[in-house]
Every structure is written in structure tokens, then in C-alpha cells.
Design a protein around this nucleic acid. Structure first.
Lengths: 234, 234
DNA sequence: CGTGTGATTGACGCCTGTCAACGTCTGTGG
DNA sequence: CCACAGACGTTGACAGGCGTCAATCACACG
């Protein structure tokens, strides 16, 4: 982790329409901008570890973070990703529990830190902000519950297809249809909840079926409709 | 659903130490007690359906409710249970989404209904209450994320053992070690995320191994330590 | 006593995880 | 500039966990 002199203004992040901080008033934004600290992190760096007591909430200003739990024999299960405007670590701060995931940078990132006290004060003093955070947490809960059902009932092929579509929606594609997030095969497997080799084999099959194209870690979505069918989405 | 004349006082539920409503002041409790409606539901009745727009939050005063999602070909995945003092339906009200689960009574229940507006007002006007609801939601989120990891990485045997231990912790056992919640084999399978036949086979194995005793739907925990080992819990 | 729901057991085979070997690429240091 | 280490990707072989289908049993209820 290095110091990052070019600290981004919160108001920039706030411009994101779906951003939580848009409920803050001018004064609160300025205060937050003053009190937050901000750092640059290279790929591979860890923001916080599962099991640690959190001291605040992080807001991603740039880059991509993966949040994962470490399960049996060190195998990681990716729970979600965070990108520009997303907050991480809020769950354990709010529930006053230990961090339930590890946060690791997978694309060079700029991350702001908001101390717990500041965060809690903002919640106490601004009920609109508080409601938005609650809305966000409940939305996450809904997604987690859906994923439980998927992973319990769908097979690996269906899940992998679904993950690819999810990545497209969440991170977008470029003009050639290439996913704007670059993951290793192992990471792809660790979202899907399968072995790396299984993920690779299925990707190859999808390629043979002309639903996707592969070029190293670049994955292009060629036929979204058939992917949806493969994913068993209606 | 029948009308239920013997309406319970909220203050009774509030006496539960872990209850969310304990943050309400006397006036709020009285208001809530006045505005809420309360009904008796027999086993099998449905409180609300997945996909419906919720009109309020429910609080369980008596009995047990299962919350499940309906997946591929109608197979249900049980997400959680709610018992005395627990609230259900709050997620979709807070995230202003459609209900992501169906709530079905599995043990005759008395359930109170709090209209959305009342619920939202309480949140807006009482930040302690609001923080407690947030804490509750974030705690649930942590549990869901843990379960994702379990279901993705553990095998059925480990998961089933874990579920039995969870049921013991959550619903308790009587003097003979019998679980205080009665589930069909199919329901047990639908929590674990497996086929009914697999659940049955593994229960038989656990019985042969003298970790549990079976008598119809009564399941007695005989050897918690070995169950923990089987569940791969440390 | 018939009917229906739930519980149990057996047979069978596919999906998927594991192990192992090998290919590919990138960055580093001599 | 090349050799090499190490991480990542790919493919094949194999076994076994677990889902599916089907038959049978147990039990409650009208």
C-alpha cells in the first residue's frame, strides 16, 4: 500500500447515480472528504482479512476488489466484487461482528477509508442515508439468497453460464463483446463454486458451441440468448 | 387464515432479549400494538408468496415459519426459519423489491402484521431501532454468505450434519435430546440442498453410527462432538 | 378399508472433483 | 539476449458422490 496524493473528492463518487453517499448533504460530504483517508493498492494487495475486527468502511474509487471467504483447505469462495462507488466492510461494522470475508485487489485500485465512528455518525444523523444503506444491504441479502438456491439446485454448467452473464451486466463489455473484468480461471471457478479444471472444460465447451470466444483471460460473449438458455434463466 | 381474538401484546414479544422492538419507546410500542393486526395460521398456510409486492412486515408471535425460494422445476430451497419474536418480509419492504421468498407455516402460528408505512415511520423516527434492524439484516447477510461457502465446498454429509447442529442451536432440544422442531425428510433435504433420498440415507448412516436417534420425525442428538467432526466444524 | 402422503431401500449412471502430466506465457537475472 | 523459474492454463484418466427412477412400506385419515 502506498500513499496516494491525488485524493479523489467524494463528490465525484457521489455523482454515480446509484451511489449511497448521494443522500449526504453538502456539509456531510465536505466533512467526509476531509476525514477520509485514501490509498492506492496494486493487484494482489489485501484490504482486510476475514476474521479481523473492522475499524471502518472502505469505498472503492477506482479498480476492482474481490470479496471472498476461505473455506475447506483454503479454497476460496468469491462472494462478490466491488468497483467504483461500491462500499466494502460495511457489513461487519454494522453487525459489530468480525469481517466475514477477505478483500483483495484484482485490478489496481484506489480505496478510501471511513472510520467506524464517522460512518456510524452519518447513519445516526441522516435517516435518508441510513435508509439507503439498509436498502443496499437488503438487496445484497436478496442476491445472496438467490445464489444459495442456484448453487444448491443448478449444475456447474448452468452456474458458469449464469456467472458469465452476471459479469457482463455488472462490468460491461467492450465493442468486441469482451468482458471488462479479467479473471483467472481459478477465480472464475471460485465464483461458480467448482474446481478450476471443471470451469476450464466448460469454458471450452461454450467456445466450441460458439457462445463465447476465448483469448487468454479475455472472454467475449457471442450469443447471450443461448447462454441464458444454458444458464436456465427465463 | 382466521381472525385471532386473543391478540398478543407487543410488549410480550419485546421481552425477548434479542428482539428488535426493544428499542421502541413506550409510546411507539403502544401505537404499534394498536395498529398491528394479528392472525392465527395453521400448518401449511402461506403468509406471503415469492414474487408478490409486500405490503408490510410480519412478526411471529408463536409457531414456526419456513422461508423458501422456489427453484428449478419447483424444488424448494429453504433459506431460513422464523420463530417467536422474529420478523419476516422486512427485506423486500426495505429494499423495495418483490418478495424473494415464500413464507409458509410449518408449526401452527400466530403472526402479527405491521403495515409498511408504520414500519418505515418507526425506522425514520428511531435511529436506535433503525440501527438494530440494520444489525439484524447484516447478520443475516453474514449467515447467507457462510452458507454459500458451505454449500459450494462441503459435501452433502457435512452439510446435513451441520444443519442438524444448527437446528439444535436455533430451536433447542428436550430432555431426551430430541430436536424441538419437526421437519419432514423432504424439508431437511431442502435446507441441506440435496435430494430427499440422499438426506434419508445419510440420516440412517448417522443413526447407525449412533450420532443421532430417529423416531419418525423426531430426531435426537446423541453425540454432538462427532456430529461436529462430521460437519467439518472446528 | 381404500387413498394419499411421507419414508425407505435398491439399482444405476452421470456429473464433477481429484490427480497427474504437459503446454504456455511472463518476468527476472545472469 | 537467452535460460529458467513459477504461475497459469489445458487435457486425459479415473473413481465415487449423489441425483434419479422405481418399487415397497408405514401410517393417518375420511
Amino acid at each position: 500500500m502506498k500513499n496516494f496524493d491525488d485524493v479523489p473528492f467524494c463528490s465525484e463518487c457521489v455523482s454515480n447515480i446509484s451511489n449511497i453517499f448521494k443522500q449526504l448533504n453538502q456539509q456531510q460530504i465536505e466533512d467526509l472528504n476531509y476525514i477520509k483517508s485514501c490509498n492506492f493498492h496494486k493487484r494482489g494487495e489485501i484490504i482486510y482479512h476475514e476474521g479481523n475486527r473492522p475499524t471502518g468502511v472502505y469505498c472503492v474509487s477506482k479498480g476492482i476488489i474481490k470479496l471472498y471467504k476461505t473455506g475447506i483447505e483454503g479454497k476460496e469462495q468469491i462472494i462478490r466484487f466491488a468497483k467504483k462507488g461500491d462500499i466494502i466492510g460495511y457489513r461487519s461494522v454494522l453487525s459489530t461482528e468480525l469481517a466475514c470475508t477477505t478483500a483483495k485487489v484484482i485490478e489496481d485500485a484506489v480505496v478510501c477509508f471511513i472510520p467506524s465512528e464517522t460512518w456510524m455518525e452519518m447513519l445516526q444523523n441522516n435517516s435518508n442515508f441510513s435508509m439507503d444503506v439498509m436498502r443496499f444491504a437488503c438487496n445484497e441479502l436478496g442476491k445472496s439468497n438467490s445464489f444459495i438456491t442456484d448453487i444448491a439446485q443448478k449444475n456447474v454448467r448452468e452456474r458458469l453460464a449464469e456467472i458469465l452473464l452476471y459479469l457482463k451486466d455488472d462490468f460491461g463489455i467492450d465493442a468486441d463483446g469482451v468482458l471488462q473484468i479479467s479473471l483467472t480461471r481459478e477465480e472464475l471457478a471460485n465464483i461458480t463454486g467448482t474446481a478450476t479444471e471443471s470451469a476450464i472444460r466448460l469454458l471450452s465447451e461454450f467456445k466450441d458451441d460458439k457462445m463465447i470466444a476465448l483469448n487468454g483471460r479475455k472472454i467475449a460473449i457471442l450469443d447471450e440468448n443461448r447462454l441464458k438458455k444454458t444458464a436456465n434463466l427465463y
